[in-house]
């Protein structure tokens, strides 16, 4: 593996962890609101809060780690994306601030007003829809250079079918993934009433989520045909495996068996789909201006960053396992909250 490929693979792992954890967090935030509106049994809310309490801060750090890693390994990415994403990035930040603080108000400060729930739930749904627009932008055609200045063709993005299929896909995926997870969590906590609610959401949204994902390929074939071709030929096997995982997970959900496995399978489903998309996207970070081979940081810094990465992972992985052991795999906590 070449240096740039190594670096991008590591970054990919952080990004993927963020995608999964953030999907759970954002989706749960919305379901927290939804549970109140639809007057679901109180247990459903309790499940969501119990999971989120110790985990939500960690989720956010994955985003930070991805961003600093990207700027560290590919400094020109800071220049290109920093310039181009001023508007979408700022909107995402505002939503992120609202989501985080209002969740804290509801959860830690025990404010029970419905408007607070609504705000953090809505922000949680809008966030993935804004964050995902990074991907269509990276496909090229939306960024031009005028007098040596980079410009994002914002209107072109907003009217592009590619953008909207991604938005739809993000929205459905977030709810689907979080529902599958919460089904598992509630089952483990011995709360079948809550689990049933989450399972229904998962079953209702599973097929639309998959469909919207497959649907992305259509506008992609239009916007960047050679990328579409690479997915459809070289990497189609990854997509097939991903689809197989989905089918298995969905069947388990339908039969209401092995909630933990169905969640793992859904993670694997997304991992393979994202891999297929990501590999076929390489070597470009931003087509055609920025590719990983030109953008890679100087070798000295690369060396240090890698060592920092190794050292950091030596803290991170045991830390995360410990956290999971205390709050995810501990029957006492999951069941009773202590």
């Amino acid at each position: 593996m070449s240096k740039p490929e190594m670096a991008i693979s590591i970054l990919w792992m952080f990004l993927f962890c963020y995608i999964i954890l953030a999907s759970i967090e954002f989706g749960s935030g919305f379901l927290l609101f939804w549970a109140r509106v639809r007057k679901w049994p109180h247990e459903a809310e309790e499940m969501i809060e119990r999971y989120l309490s110790p985990f939500w801060e960690v989720t956010n750090v994955f985003l930070i780690a991805f961003i600093v890693g990207l700027v560290g390994f590919f400094p020109s990415a800071a220049y290109y994306y920093g310039t181009v994403l001023l508007l979408p990035g700022s909107i995402a930040l505002i939503l992120l601030v609202l989501k985080g603080t209002f969740f804290a108000y509801c959860h830690y400060a025990k404010v029970r007003h419905w408007a607070y729930y609504l705000l953090q739930g809505l922000a949680g749904l809008l966030l993935p829809m804004v964050l995902v627009s990074l991907i269509p932008v990276s496909e090229g055609g939306f960024v031009t250079e005028v007098d040596g200045k980079l410009v994002l063709l914002f209107e072109k993005v907003m009217t592009s079918p590619l953008q909207w299929t991604f938005v739809l896909f993000a929205l459905l995926s977030v709810l689907f993934v979080s529902a599958v997870f919460l089904n598992f969590y509630a089952t483990k906590a011995g709360s079948p009433v809550a689990a049933a609610k989450f399972r229904t959401v998962a079953l209702n949204l599973g097929l639309p989520a998959l469909g919207s994902g497959a649907f992305i390929l259509l506008p992609l074939a239009n916007v960047r045909p050679e990328h579409f071709l690479r997915i459809a030929t070289d990497y189609s096997w990854l997509l097939l495996i991903s689809g197989a995982f989905f089918v298995t997970a969905y069947m388990l959900l339908q039969k209401n068996r092995r909630a933990g496995w169905s969640f793992l399978l859904v993670i694997a489903q997304y991992a393979f789909a994202v891999m297929a998309y990501g590999y076929s996207h390489l070597p470009y970070l931003l087509y055609p201006q920025l590719n990983i081979n030109d953008a890679i940081v100087n070798p000295v810094m690369y060396h240090y960053l890698m060592w920092a990465m190794v050292g950091g992972l030596c803290i991170l992985i045991p830390g995360l396992l410990f956290l999971a052991w205390l709050f995810l795999f501990s029957k006492d906590y999951v069941k009773n909250g202590y």
Binding site: V68, M309, G312, L316
Partner: peptide
């Protein structure tokens, strides 16, 4: 990154290490 892209480009080459360690 959004407001000072040129600074971050240079910082990325020279001083991104503490940013990365900070994340951990």
């Amino acid at each position: 990154n959004l407001l000072w892209p040129n600074f971050m480009k240079l910082a990325g080459e020279v001083i991104s290490l503490p940013f990365m360690m900070e994340a951990f």
